[in-house]
Simulated assay, not measured.
Amino acid sequence: MKTYLVTGAANGIGRAVALRLGEAGDIAILNDLTDSTDLQAVTEELRDCGVQARVALGDVSDPSTAAHAFEGLDRLDVLVNNAGILFEAPITELSLEQWDRMIRVHLHGAFLFSKGAAALMKRQGSGAIINIASDLGQLGCVNLCHYSAAKGGIIAFSKSLARELAPWQVRVNSVAPGGTLTPMVERMGEDYIREEAARYPLQRLGSAEEIANVVAFLASDQASFMTGQILGVNGGGAMVG
């Protein structure tokens, strides 16, 4: 039986990933901040497909959330660190509390959940960790220095962890989406979405399902010789060699 864990699973990319991995998984652990109707819907949809799904609520930057998610697990095949937040602010108006919150959700969360996953995966001698980064972690963006720094940190973290866990055949990769039409992005407003779409050669934003397909590939045996990689799913917005 394959077991997978997705953080930030209630909607957007997390929801799409949870459902996509459910096609090949038997047991799912779904994290989100609160027990929303969106999270309940994902859980029920997975259960209807025969997946044993359970919920692990809480803030990913809180160590107790990760501890609860891993409670009773003796195996984990796939971890997807997806939970994130997004808001714009110029650096002159960005508070230390806002900076700290951005870093804690993205980097503390990835660290805490990866630490728990690594313990299990090293013991079993296999596993895949996929961290959701962003093209802004490669390119930067005006009024998003805090978000870009957090996502750039995710990329560096993924590369280092890939080297550290490789002797145990544990693969670590990151997916760096471009603008993706999720509820989090929709809250940025129509002007932001229009301007964001215009900067991509494909002239559109991506879908959560398009990101989930790449995550599923990295989680599968088809990517068995890939680790430490950054896969850009960004409509051509970042062509990084």
Rank of each mutant, 00 (worst) to 15 (best):
E195D: 15
R187E: 12
K151V: 12
E88I: 01
R54D: 12
A53T: 11
L96Q: 11
I129K: 01
C49M: 14
L57T: 12
A67S: 15
L86G: 05
I103P: 03
Y192L: 04
A197N: 08
G153L: 13
A238G: 04
E71H: 13
S207L: 10
A198V: 09
P63H: 13
L161F: 03
N143C: 05
G84F: 06
D221H: 08
A208Q: 02
Q169G: 00
P167S: 05
G8M: 06
H68F: 12
E23S: 13
N11V: 06
G153M: 10
V80W: 02
E195M: 11
I130K: 05
V80K: 01
M188R: 10
D62R: 12
K159E: 14
A10S: 15
G125C: 12
I29N: 08
A18S: 15
V78E: 02
L205C: 04
G232F: 04
A150P: 02
I155W: 02
E44A: 15
G189W: 06
V55Q: 01
G22C: 08
A118Q: 07
E186Q: 14
A110T: 15
A128G: 12
L231M: 11
T34C: 11
S158K: 07
F70R: 03
A128E: 12
Y4T: 00
L96M: 10
D35S: 09
G189S: 14
A223R: 04
G84A: 08
L33V: 10
T182V: 09
S160C: 14
G140M: 08
F225A: 12
A56R: 03
S220P: 05
A83P: 03
I13E: 02
A56Y: 03
G236N: 00
A24G: 02
Q222G: 12
T180A: 09
A166V: 11
Q40P: 01
R47W: 02
L120M: 09
Y4S: 05
H108D: 15
E210K: 10
